[in-house]
Amino acid sequence: MATTTSTALSNRNRLLGFGLATLAAIGFSGKAILVKLAYYQPIDAVTLLALRMLFSAPFFLIVAWRHVGRKDLTPLTGRDYLALLILGLLGYYLSSLFDFIGLQYISAGLERLILFLYPTMVVVLSAVVLGKPFGRKEIVALLLSYAGIGVVFFDEITIQSAHLLLGAGFVFASTLTYAAYLIGTGETVVRIGASRFTAYAMLVACLATVLQFLFTHPPQALLLPMRVYQLSLLMAIFSTVLPVFMLSAAIKMIGSSHTSLIGSLGPVATLFMASYFLGEELSLAQIGGATLVMVGVLSLSLK
């Protein structure tokens, strides 16, 4: 009887983990849709990112405060604070800034596909910087992934603005900085703890974003239509805070491998949401390109 109960509980936890991972993937994907909707209003990337961070900061402050003074946690050293500073700026500030700028010029669907390339960049950077093995399987994965991006990119040349290359370049830079951030997080997260690391690193990014806004914009730049505040709040809650913690919970319940595989739903969700909410064309070329990208990335994830 006890074994049956334990098995049922385990199955329930796994089902919950898969559900949380799916919701996290959809939440992260919805960010591009909310950003594009906000750009229908008179707002620039720095101001929009500052609003997102301002609305997100209280949630991460609460999480950070809960970790203060806990005796069961390893005390932070100067090296830890330096790592949090660098990784917070790299993974949550620069990566987000480049992404928001890029979304001014390209479709939400293309943006999500380029961002989804980050595992391939992790493999390349790990080979170049850390000397990790790089063989035939990795080469095939790269060829498939970037061929898929090429298909979508050239399909959108005919329907996108003249700044398509500029936007794609910024989003690619976002993906590259995020990949570099992931490479640097491993040892730090283990030492600090996932939730504490995420909260502190996000607060670093929040502070950097707000400082950039204050140095580059007058205070009256925050006098915006109510629609912008609504979208920014939705972005903070449903595409930043909740997905971050749902992802952490999912990893605990079903493991990082299963969670990352479910994350492949992201580009698909973005394509369909962009078609429904933004009226972006969902062409056969986009579907074919997205398939190539996901096959290439998933071949690395499965490994």
Rank of each mutant, 00 (worst) to 15 (best):
N13P: 04
F18C: 14
G19C: 10
L23Q: 02
S29N: 06
S29G: 15
I33F: 08
L34M: 13
V35C: 05
Y39E: 06
I43H: 08
I43R: 10
L51F: 03
M53G: 03
W65K: 14
L84T: 02
G88S: 05
G88L: 07
G88C: 06
Y92D: 01
S96M: 12
S96V: 12
G102A: 07
I114K: 00
L125N: 01
S126M: 07
A127T: 03
G135I: 09
K137H: 14
E138Q: 15
L144G: 10
A147E: 13
F153L: 15
F153Q: 09
F153G: 12
I157N: 01
I159S: 15
H163L: 13
L165Y: 13
L165V: 14
F172A: 13
T175D: 11
Y178T: 00
Y178K: 06
A179E: 01
A179C: 08
Y181R: 04
Y181L: 08
L182A: 11
G184Y: 08
G184T: 05
V190H: 14
R191Q: 10
R191D: 05
G193R: 00
T198G: 03
A201N: 10
V204K: 03
L207V: 15
A208P: 09
L211C: 11
L211E: 08
F213V: 02
T216C: 04
H217K: 15
L224M: 05
L224W: 04
M226A: 14
V228I: 13
V228C: 00
Q230D: 05
S232G: 05
M235V: 05
I237D: 03
F245H: 00
F245Q: 03
L247Q: 14
S248N: 15
M253R: 15
I254N: 12
H258I: 06
L265M: 12
G266D: 08
P267D: 06
V268C: 11
V268R: 08
A269I: 00
T270E: 01
T270G: 05
L271S: 14
L271R: 12
Y276W: 13
L278V: 01
L278Q: 01
G279L: 07
L282G: 00
Q286I: 12
Q286F: 14
Q286V: 06
G289H: 02
L292H: 01
L300M: 00
S301T: 14
L302C: 06
